[in-house]
């Protein structure tokens, strides 16, 4: 529990995952990250349409005791946000790679994806 990784995803060293679907990518936090945070109780998501650059603060995830910034792993425009998390932030704990995704980004620079960590490199980190 707490260290699941998935082969079809790319990762960052700050524990975000990225799933490419054509021109957009879904972004979330890894199983390792959710398990370290425990009890996610609040998520602040960006506005749809907002432009973000790789490395910008994307959203804020809070547990009872901690506030964690989540950084944009890729640049682009926020195409979609996981509204459901505003009511049930614990979904991130329960399903970090599926139901618990944070945002969908319309990519402005697809080559950024190649610079992210692959599953083996991320596994070494955790």
């Amino acid at each position: 529990m707490g260290n699941e990784v998935r082969n079809n995803l790319k990762y960052t060293d700050t524990h975000e995952w990225v799933k490419l679907n054509g021109e957009t990518a879904h972004v979330g936090i890894t199983d390792h990250a959710q398990s370290e945070l425990t009890d996610i109780v609040f998520v602040e998501l960006p506005e749809v349409g907002k432009e973000v650059k790789k490395g910008d603060e994307l959203c804020v995830v809070e547990s009872v005791k901690s506030v964690s910034e989540i950084y944009a792993p890729v640049s682009g425009k926020i195409a979609n946000i996981n509204k459901k998390l505003e009511e049930t932030p614990e979904t991130i704990n329960e399903s970090p790679y599926d139901e618990g995704w944070l945002v969908e980004i319309e990519l402005t620079n697809k080559s950024e994806i190649d610079k992210l960590l692959d599953v083996d490199s991320y596994k070494k980190l955790i």
Binding site: T38, D39, V41, S63, V64, K65
Partner: peptide
């Protein structure tokens, strides 16, 4: 110890 299982559950 800051927590064992989860702060919410312990609370």
């Amino acid at each position: 110890p800051i927590q064992y299982s989860s702060i919410k559950d312990e609370h």
